[in-house]
């Protein structure tokens, strides 16, 4: 029997731990931390039911700064630790905080498998396209040609794109946000937290020490309207300072068109985050700067059974009462062929 605890209204400050936040001044992580704290009270979940789990990297210090249950695990394995925790305790609200190195390089395998199982948790991947904690080496999302300490002549590694990977792994919820766009980040976090299943959120996060300005095209006042496209379910894909441009489907490829001159909104691609097939959502993940505006918001949000809830229904998780327990063990020990020696 579940007893519902009376939920006292919580404030963002209630989620702050007593630990000093030690990210570099100016790091994008601060904004994300603040926004997560702002989002949590609205979920109505008691903070003792919330667990933040991370791996290794700058972003992975996150749990220390939250006054919830938290686990700062080892490099790349947050998804696996979180999977075990959530399977054992489906009643908990689980968040994973990871980065482009932690989640996509050393931990890529676990990310794929947790997503395909659709374990009900919210995954925040802080993508700064660099290794920060080890002081500036290229990451799996760094662009080809990037000069770093381990790629002095420019990186020859071809990058991968987190949202494309997530969709390839059968993600039921895929979204993107930008660290400095607080209001939109808050919206995406809330949507992600409320989704049942693995919610995968890529957050563009600026590392002002080792990769400053990686997303300046999307944050600068002068360019942001032409480089960002905000997704809205059921609405056409429109962007530009005066909302004068849109994305149209040309055969199977997206193309940028200017509205007017015989092209109306009805000619544009309409966003459907609930589409059963992820083809169009995938296409949106392939739009990259500078050839296209990059999409922000919820790419995909569909319902699919969650591993841990199905497994929980299959197993008889309530321990039997004291007396019945012995009978249950005796039945197990005596299962199969037995014989009696007098």
């Amino acid at each position: 029997m579940k007893v519902e605890m009376p939920v006292e209204p919580l404030k963002p400050a209630d989620f702050a731990s007593d630990q000093e936040v030690r990210w570099c001044p100016g790091c994008g992580d601060y904004a994300i931390l603040a926004q997560v704290k702002k989002t949590l009270p609205g979920l109505g979940i008691p903070k003792e039911k919330i667990v933040f789990i991370s791996g290794i990297g700058c972003s992975s210090r996150f749990p220390y700064y939250m006054n919830t249950y938290g686990f700062h695990s080892i490099h790349g394995r947050a998804m696996a630790v979180a999977s075990g925790l959530k399977i054992a305790r489906p009643d908990l609200n689980v968040w994973v905080v990871t980065g482009d190195g932690d989640g996509l390089s050393i931990g890529g395998n676990h990310l794929l498998h947790a997503i395909r199982r659709n374990i009900d948790m919210t995954v925040l991947l802080f993508n700064n396209r660099i290794y920060g904690l080890t002081k500036g080496q290229y990451s799996p999302t760094s662009e080809v040609g990037k000069r770093t300490k381990t790629s002095p002549r420019g990186s020859v590694d071809f990058p991968l794109h987190p949202l494309s990977v997530a969709i390839g792994a059968e993600a039921s919820f895929v979204a993107r946000a930008l660290d400095v766009d607080l209001k939109h980040l808050g919206y995406v976090l809330e949507r992600a937290a409320k989704h049942k299943g693995t919610s995968f959120v890529e957050i563009y996060q600026n590392c002002n020490i080792f990769n400053d300005g990686a997303y300046s095209y999307a944050t600068d006042k002068g360019t942001k309207h032409d480089t960002r496209l905000i997704l809205e379910h059921g609405k056409p894909l429109i962007f530009g300072k005066d909302r004068e441009k849109g994305i149209r489907l040309n055969c199977t490829d997206p193309e940028i068109v200017t509205l007017g001159d015989g092209i109306s909104e009805d000619d544009l691609l309409f966003h459907d985050e609930k589409a059963a097939e992820p083809s169009l959502a995938y296409l949106l993940t392939r739009m990259h700067h500078p050839n296209f505006p990059e999409a922000f918001g919820v790419f995909r949000a569909v319902e699919r059974p969650c591993y841990e809830y199905v497994l929980d229904e299959m197993s008889d998780s309530t321990p039997p009462p004291q007396g019945a327990e012995d009978a249950e063990i005796d039945a197990l020990l005596n299962s199969g062929d037995t014989w009696v020696v007098d």
Partner: peptide
């Protein structure tokens, strides 16, 4: 018997999920 079995994607995930379940 209240046993939950998780066939993990690899040995590392098997161990890490065990750590997570213990914390839980």
């Amino acid at each position: 018997m209240g046993v939950k079995t998780f066939q993990a994607e690899d040995e590392i995930a098997a161990m890490c999920s065990t750590v997570g379940a213990a914390f839980a």
